[in-house]
Design a binder for these strands. Structure first.
Lengths: 219, 219
DNA sequence: CACTTCAGTTAGAAGTTATCACGAACATTA
DNA sequence: TAATGTTCGTGATAACTTCTAACTGAAGTG
């Protein structure tokens, strides 16, 4: 049994081809969207014919799932890198926007239209939880906390006993609520901007993003 | 030249078949997503074979565009109906959420992953502008206005001269900014909820939605 | 050297969108 | 009424797609 002490040439070849396939897939997704991803086109552009690709991926679904996984990992890495570089919540927001604009279709691979039947593998939701943890940490480290009014207070008491999504993070409910607001508000602006819903409207999305961010940091 | 005085039986039949096709399409989209929409399957389920459908729609793209148009119209109708029934901004938020939960895939047909090349026809963007107008009206009718801090103030001055998206609505910049915040924040929560990003996290999305709404009405 | 493993091939099934040419039903006009 | 169009639905066909099966050849292993 090959102990995989380093890696056999065959394994290296295999992972290299897999990576090349994914690269072509990303290229295709960026230009035509995930729904137009064609295994056939990838194979032909790599100089091999049709079914050869099935040696490396079980099929279209597995390839896309792998791309989704990479997208999540990429986002988690940017967040973690920003946090380790000492970024606060505003820094995270900036890193997120930069990352999203870098490849809109990658963003939509995570946050775009869901396929009704699809259920993400557990290791992917694990990465998602890791991302949330970074955000919650940043919210807990902020000097002030958002003051709860009516509905916010109700939500805070709800969060008191519903925080397993944050891995039972010891932060205050207000901090948890701010983390969720951060997520939803930044996503709200970003997704609409990346989807092109603002094009032709005339205002600068970056300013809206900044305003939403500051409104989140303030009270 | 048939003056189309009322409508010929053939025209009635035609529009009826078109409607039936769209109904089957909606059904299919709701269960499997728009990317899995199959003209073939629709034809067969209607008892006619393959290419017959091309008498009624130029092709897949035209059918989907028509569905998008209907989705926009449906949303515009709900907003308008709510506004005419005297709903304030909170009422609009409630109507929006109900409408979205009614058919998530219809929501994503409007706000979901964009197809890189696709450009919506002008009459559709017209409906979108109509929707924005209702929201801006509701924001202008609110008693208080959001107080601008730093970035919000910068955005307000920007909106002073960039308001053609609101058909040059005479509302104050603060009201316009609130309208945009309303749109992005409600969409932020809704889209993530409908995409299933909250499932397994344990908290109630409705409470988050309510909290975000109230945070929008307050200051 | 023999044997196994694996990459890549062609062939083919089943599905899709979309076009074409034809017959049949319908509507309109002479 | 009869002739003439117009439109609907059909089967055949092309060009795609994913994906399976069987086969060839090369690379690594005992």
């Amino acid at each position: 049994m090959a102990e995989a002490r380093t890696s056999t040439p065959r394994e290296r070849y295999r992972t290299q081809v897999r990576a090349e396939i994914k690269e072509h897939a990303w290229e295709q997704i960026a230009t035509a969207g995930a729904s137009a991803l064609s295994l056939n086109a990838i194979s032909k552009r790599m100089g091999m014919s049709g079914p050869a690709l099935y040696r490396y991926f079980d099929g279209r679904d597995e390839l896309i799932t792998e791309l989704i996984r990479d997208a999540y990992r990429s986002q988690a890495d940017t967040f973690r890198a920003a946090a380790e570089a000492g970024a606060d919540l505003a820094g995270l927001a900036h890193a997120l926007r930069t990352w999203a604009l870098e490849d809109p279709q990658r963003y939509f691979l995570i946050f775009g239209t869901p396929v009704p039947g699809y259920r993400a593998p557990d290791d992917i939701t694990e990465i998602a939880a890791e991302i949330m943890t970074v955000i919650v940490d940043a919210c807990a480290a902020l000097p002030s906390e958002p003051t709860p009014d009516g509905a916010a207070e109700a939500f805070d008491t709800h969060l008191e006993t519903h925080r397993q999504w944050a891995r039972d993070h010891p932060a205050s409910p207000a901090a948890l609520r701010r983390a969720l607001s951060f997520w939803t508000r930044m996503h709200g602006v970003l997704s609409l901007e990346l989807a092109g819903q603002f094009t032709g409207m005339g205002f600068d999305p970056a300013l809206l993003y900044a305003a939403e961010l500051e409104g989140l940091l303030g009270p």
